[in-house]
Design a protein around this nucleic acid. Structure first.
Length: 950
DNA sequence: TCCCTCACG
DNA sequence: GACGTACGTGAGGGAA
């Protein structure tokens, strides 16, 4: 054991976080944050952490501190005694949502957090206490739990004491003696005799504190008491001691703290530093803790002054310089990021020689990692021109390497740049070195830019995707937002260096000094964010979804974007012409019926024409007070034979198709490739789905015949075909599996039509009408049902809709149970999970605003199903290229993903072989992580165009 | 920039 | 007692 006795006395504070929250909840008034989530107990907790940490410089104050939390679920004690803590009442409804916020609060205070499976917080406290005492440290346990009193040494100068912050009372051996009448070393024996109702420790019936005290004083220990029991004077108590001796021994085992747990964070890594404002301020702001916010400014100012005098590091630094603590035998850990100097853009280097670039690359090799970012003149990776790139090797140490800077009046600067080709060759060596981790924010973009220069990037970590895997639903994942949130830093904005609007300049025209500040800061911030986020991945169980699903898909998506899909401009142009003609004639007809010309595309003007001038009955809606003129209203009118309504609908359809598709898509054809290159968003959809932008290729028409023609413009190169493979009913299949609905599972297994089966179960007969209703209800279930919503869709009374919902739940009780369990879990934990462990957070699930709350509830019901489906197709995509290559089909190219569909381009002769590989990969995508109890179905079609392939 | 509308799964 | 009602997206056009 290291001996620290020579150094100043170290003092470890161990905060029993979970226990504190309970007490704070009951002793503080209810309070909600601006989102409507109750946070009274969290405020109490935050105040306590502040107060404790503020004692850093006080005599005998903490030098080291950590928060110990109870992990949800059972502990090893339940294996010994299944009734352990069985009588605990459930936490109050407005306390549950506060549990997950404890972690946010602890992180906001930059305190290390320990939270272990299968043991309780008390055991971790005991283990850390033992280790610290062995080193001669003092330990203060911030708790008032009587179980923990065992840890106080039974002597006057005990190294261990307890602190009850709510009563502001120190508890030492004397206080324990006062409370129990015995010393701390006998507290365990005491509890074993008298039992403990709060933990459901049985003890010996009829023996309370007074009797236990008397017995222990007389016989010295529990074993002494039990050994002497048979010989004691006959009495009710004596009989019970004999009869329940085993119970007492079992109790003794239960109350004994396990003090040899592996320590996931080293004691030295718990060193307490001044609390950095960075992560703290956004947390306090989010929850509206104004009083604390005020104090933050004051205290850190004074502290900074004190430290400056002492010549110490600035107050904004935290943690210790050592690399983050490592995990012990797979145990979860949560430590703090390494010490980081303040962000200072003036300190960044502008690299203008190959020698200097070589030094930076050598630094990266020495670290084994580098944060990397490219600067270009466009958000569209495929057409973007490279202006330069930046590297960061350690927090605060970053550079910018301009490659093609220089505008009309800046020729002088061109001489100050590294030669392009040599620099790119050096960069290629670095980025393709598989012993160096490349860290980036949205690396898919950089990959797509650099692939034009023959560079691939691997291996990688992407801070944007890591943030998404940790915090989907909580906030956005853009770098500026993350920097503000985690680092408390306001990034230099792109606009401030390039300007906006007419006066905007290309990045390559930005003067080097400004460009360096902006670009190197991006790399520096990315590296700092990575340190924050990486630490959270394992303890927050984000590793599986990140490593096995989302990260592998980054590279795949980059390839798909670069490939693009061929679009036949002639087809689109022809359609545009046809649509324009039809719109023209509809427009004059509409104007004639209306009796005056007006802008049909203006909902405001259309509403006035229909519902004021022409006198049809309409509904005003919303705060804008406008008449609603959407499809449902117009369809309704058309059904009543109102001619103008039908014509407006037809006009609208054409206008939509023309402007959004046939016109806009032509503009998106890349002149060099003749193809359209969409951009996929990995963090756009909260559920884990991808999104597609510029252009969106996930909403190309298919539902109407007229719109469908647009798909004929998406074609294969000569000699090739388009192959479309889609999962059949994947969300319903997943619902059947997740909610464990036997009838639906059987129906899928037997290849039955699922809506027919539902109709049979619900209505007792299958016909067009009942099948249609069943289909609507099936989807309603996936989306979180409400009687009102269903009533509207089915055009029945809410009562009738409710009857159908009741019938559905009665037929498929698993569904109802799934909904209840999912909601209970989300309300308590704050997030939902897919089968693969992808989390989606719902910060408004406990909102006081009913509409907001119910909206969150519906989304929460849907997220595990939609999200699991997204996970499965992503896993298929991650494996697809390898599987095809193994089958000698490397020239089969995956082009598009549309949620449950993958689109490929391949030589006609390979269709049969490729179909088999694609089907196998897609059907087996959940394995081996998860086995779905329903077979997944994949339908495949091929043709010269996407339209034909369906 | 917001709102409305509508294309997709 | 009123609210506003199916989940997840992105894009274009009009109005302010």
């Amino acid at each position: 054991m290291p001996d620290d006795s020579e150094t100043p006395q170290k003092h470890l504070y161990l905060v029993d976080g979970s226990a504190f929250i309970f007490r704070a909840y009951y002793s503080l008034p209810p309070l909600t944050n601006p989102e409507g989530t109750p946070v009274g107990a969290i405020l109490g907790y935050s105040n306590m952490l502040w107060k404790l940490a503020d004692d850093l410089h006080a005599a005998d104050g903490p030098t080291h501190m950590a928060v110990i939390l109870d992990k949800a679920g059972t502990s090893f004690r339940n294996d010994i005694y299944d009734q352990y803590k069985a009588n605990r009442p459930e936490a109050p409804e407005d306390l549950k949502p506060q549990f997950p916020i404890i972690r946010d609060a602890t992180r906001a205070f930059s305190l290390p957090m320990v939270e272990e499976e299968n043991v309780e917080a008390d055991d971790m406290i005991a283990s850390y206490t033992k280790e610290a005492v062995a080193r001669g440290w003092k330990v203060t346990i911030v708790s008032s739990d009587k179980d923990l009193m065992q840890l106080i040494e039974p002597k006057e100068d005990s190294l261990v004491d307890m602190l009850d912050t709510m009563k502001d009372k120190r508890i030492g051996a004397a206080e324990v003696e006062e409370k129990f009448g015995v010393g701390p070393q006998l507290v365990g024996d005491m509890l074993s005799l008298m039992g403990d109702s709060s933990d459901n420790i049985p003890g010996v019936p009829g023996i309370g504190p007074k009797t236990a005290e008397k017995l222990l004083t007389e016989y010295g220990s529990l074993e002494g008491v039990l050994a002497a029991a048979p010989e004691m004077k006959k009495s009710k108590m004596q009989e019970r001691l004999v009869e329940f001796a085993d119970m007492a021994r079992l109790s003794r085992v239960l109350v004994t703290l396990k003090d040899d747990c592996p320590l996931p964070i080293a004691l030295d890594d718990m060193e307490l530093q001044t609390i950095p404002e960075g992560p703290l301020v956004p947390f306090l702001e989010k929850h509206g803790f104004k009083a604390l916010l005020k104090r933050v400014g004051q205290v850190t100012d004074t502290d900074a002054a004190n430290k400056a005098i002492a010549g110490q590091p600035r107050a904004t630094t935290i943690g210790n310089a050592a690399a983050p603590a490592v995990t012990v035998s797979g145990a979860p850990m949560a430590a703090r990021p390494p010490k980081m100097p303040p962000i200072d853009p003036a300190a960044y280097e502008c690299v203008t020689t190959l020698d200097a670039l070589g030094r930076w690359i050598a630094e990266a090799r020495a670290e084994g990692l580098v944060a990397f970012d490219t600067e270009t003149d466009s958000l569209e990776a495929v057409t973007a021109n490279l202006a330069g790139f930046s590297l960061a090797v350690r927090p605060g140490q970053a550079c910018y390497v301009p490659l093609s800077h220089g505008g009309s009046d800046m020729f002088a600067e061109k001489a100050d740049q590294v030669p392009f080709d040599e620099a790119m060759a050096m960069l290629k060596d670095l980025l393709e070195d598989d012993s160096i981790l490349k860290i980036g924010q949205n690396l898919k973009y950089d990959m797509s830019v650099l692939v034009q220069h023959g560079i691939t990037i691997a291996p990688i970590d992407d801070t944007m995707v890591m943030s998404f895997n940790l915090d989907a639903g909580e906030h956005g994942h853009g770098m500026d937002e993350l920097a503000k949130l985690h680092l408390g830093h306001e990034c230099i904005s792109y606009k401030s260096v390039t300007g906006t609007g007419k006066s905007q300049i290309r990045f390559a025209e930005v003067p080097l000094s400004e460009a360096t500040k902006y670009a190197a800061e991006d790399a520096d911030v990315t590296l700092r964010l990575w340190h924050h986020l990486k630490l959270r991945m394992a303890p927050e169980r984000a590793v599986r979804i990140y490593e096995l699903t989302d990260r592998p898909v980054i590279q795949v998506l980059s390839k798909m974007e670069c490939r693009g899909i061929k679009v036949d401009r002639a087809v689109l142009a022809r359609l545009s012409g046809e649509f324009a003609e039809q719109m023209q004639s509809l427009e004059s007809e509409i104007h004639q019926i209306a009796g005056e010309p007006f802008t049909i595309g203006s909902p405001k003007q259309l509403g006035e024409i229909l519902f004021e001038k022409m006198g049809y009955k309409g509904k005003r809606k919303g705060k804008s007070g406008q008449y609603s003129t959407d499809v449902t209203i117009l369809e309704d009118m058309a059904g009543q034979g109102i001619e103008i309504a039908r014509k407006v609908l037809d006009w609208r359809q054409l206008a939509k198709l023309k402007s959004t598709y046939t016109d806009a898509l032509q503009e998106q054809i890349n002149p060099n490739t003749g193809r359209v290159h969409t951009s996929y968003g990995l963090v756009g959809a909260q559920t884990g789905r991808l999104s597609s932008t510029d252009p969106n290729l996930q909403n190309i028409p298919i539902r109407t015949e007229i719109g469908r023609q647009i798909r004929d413009a998406f074609v294969a190169e000569p000699g090739n075909v388009i192959l479309a493979a889609d999962y059949s009913q994947i969300e319903l299949r997943l619902a059947a599996h997740i909610a464990d609905v036997a009838q639906l599972r059987d129906a899928f297994a037997a290849g039955e039509d699922i809506h027919n089966r539902t109709a049979q179960e619900l209505f007792g007969e299958v016909n067009r009408d009942t099948r249609g209703r069943a289909k609507t209800i099936n989807f309603a279930i996936l989306y979180g049902i409400s009687r009102w919503g269903l009533a509207k869709r089915l055009e029945v009374e809410p009562d009738e809709a409710q009857a159908m919902i009741d019938a559905y739940f009665k037929s498929f009780p698993g569904i109802s149970a799934y909904i209840q369990e999912t909601l209970a879990s989300v309300r308590e934990k704050g997030y939902s999970e897919t089968l693969f462990g992808r989390k989606t957070w719902f910060p408004r699930i406990n909102s006081k605003n009913q509409a907001e709350r119910q909206g969150s509830e519906r989304a929460a019901i849907n997220a595990p199903i939609q999200g699991t489906s997204a996970d499965i197709i992503k896993r298929a995509m991650a494996r697809m290229d390898d599987a095809l290559a193994k089958a000698g089909l490397a020239h089969v190219k995956m082009l598009l993903q549309v949620h449950d569909e993958l689109v490929f381009e391949l030589p006609e002769s390979d269709v049969a072989a490729a179909s088999e590989v694609i089907r196998n990969v897609m059907m087996g995508a959940a394995e081996p992580a998860v086995t779905i109890s329903v077979p997944l179905g994949v339908d495949i079609g091929t043709g010269k165009s996407w339209g034909e392939a369906h």
